[in-house]
Design a protein around this nucleic acid. Structure first.
Length: 279
DNA sequence: ATTGTGGCCTGCCCGC
DNA sequence: TGCGGGCAGGCCACAA
C-alpha cells in the first residue's frame, strides 16, 4: 500500500509534470474531493497554471501551483517583512490503493492489497497537460482524496528524515502501544502498517510495549532501524519488500530465529511480530 | 488535552 | 458455478 516509500516514488514521478501548463481538470468523483472543494473551483485555480514543485510529507503528496518553491520539505516561518506570494497547494492522499500515473507511466509497479492493473473507471482525478500529457490518480477503493491547501502543520516530522531528538519528542512518555505511536501521523509522518511491523521487527521491540517503557538505548536503536528501514525500502522499491512482510501470516515463522509469528491487533491494525526476539 | 473505536470505501478470496 | 461474508488499512468523526 502507499506508505512513505511509495509516495516518494510518486513524488519523483510528479516532478516530470512540473512547469507544464495545465489545460484541463478531470474530477468525476465528488467523494474524492475533500474539504468542500469543488471540481469547478479546482478548474478555476489550476487551468492555465502549472505545478512549480512536488513535495512530500509522510504519505501526503503536495503539488504547489506557480513558480518553483523550496523542495526541502517544510518551509520555515516567513519573515514578516516578506510574506511571499500566496501559494496554492494541491494535496493528494492515496489511501491504501491509490496510484499516481503520469503520461501512462505508473509511479510504482506493484501495490500490495490493490488490484494489479488499473481500470479507467478507477481514475478519480486527473489533469491534462499541454502537449497531450496527463497526470492521474487511480484509486479503486476511493480511500484517498484531493485536498486544497492541506494543513501541513498537522503532520509530524517525516520518518525519512527524523532526527533522534525529534523522534524522542514524537514518542514522548505516552502509555500508548509503541506501534500505535509510530503510526500516529501527527507525531511521526509516513509510517504505515507494514513499515511499522518491519521496523519493530528489525529493532527487536514488541509492538505492544508501552511507549514510555523504552530506554534511551532502545529509542536510539529504534531511530537507527527506522532510518535504515526507510533507506532499504526505498532502494528495494516498496514498503512490501521488507524482510518480515512475507512472514506475516498464520503458521509463519520468524526469519531471524524461527519462532512462530504472533498476531495481534494494535491501534486497530493487524500486527504480526516475533514473540522470541521482539521484547 | 489525549486516546480508543467504528465506519467508510471496494476488490479479492475463501468456503459453501 | 455463483454467491456472500470476511478481510485488507489510511483516515476521519466521534466519544470518553
Amino acid at each position: 500500500m502507499p506508505e512513505l516509500v511509495e509516495v516518494e516514488f510518486y513524488r519523483r514521478l510528479a516532478e516530470d509534470a512540473l512547469h507544464r501548463p495545465i489545460i484541463s481538470v478531470v474530477a468525476p468523483d465528488p467523494w474524492f474531493l475533500k474539504g468542500g472543494v469543488s471540481a469547478s473551483a479546482l478548474r478555476r485555480l489550476m487551468v492555465g497554471a502549472s505545478f512549480g514543485s512536488a513535495r512530500r510529507v509522510g504519505k501526503l503528496l503536495l503539488m504547489d501551483l506557480g513558480p518553483a518553491r523550496s523542495c526541502s520539505g517544510r518551509t520555515g516561518p516567513t519573515p514578516a517583512s516578506d510574506p511571499g506570494p500566496v501559494v496554492v497547494t494541491i494535496g493528494i492522499r492515496f489511501g491504501m490503493t491509490g496510484r499516481l500515473v503520469l503520461d501512462g507511466r505508473a509511479g510504482v509497479d506493484r501495490l500490495i492489497y490493490a488490484p494489479r492493473q488499473a481500470r479507467p473507471q478507477w481514475e478519480r482525478f486527473a489533469v491534462g497537460l499541454a502537449g497531450g500529457g496527463r497526470l492521474a490518480v487511480s484509486d479503486p477503493r476511493r480511500l484517498g482524496g484531493i485536498e486544497l491547501n492541506p494543513n501541513e502543520a498537522r503532520l509530524g516530522p517525516d520518518a525519512a528524515a527524523v532526527t533522534l531528538p525529534a523522534l524522542r519528542h514524537a514518542l514522548g512518555h505516552s502509555h500508548v502501544a509503541l506501534k500505535a505511536r509510530i503510526m500516529d501521523q501527527q507525531r511521526l509522518a509516513g509510517i504505515g502498517n507494514l513499515m511499522a511491523d518491519e521496523v519493530l521487527w528489525r529493532a527487536g521491540l514488541s509492538p505492544l510495549r508501552p511507549t514510555h517503557s523504552l530506554s534511551p538505548a532502545e529509542t536510539k536503536s529504534l531511530h537507527r532501524h527506522l532510518r535504515r528501514t526507510v533507506t532499504d525500502l526505498l532502494e528495494r522499491g516498496g514498503s512490501h519488500l521488507g524482510d518480515v512482510i512475507d512472514h506475516r501470516g498464520v503458521g509463519m515463522t520468524c526469519p531471524r530465529d524461527g519462532a512462530e509469528m504472533v498476531r495481534a491487533v494494535v491501534g486497530g491494525r493487524t500486527t504480526w511480530f516475533c514473540p522470541r526476539h521482539q521484547n
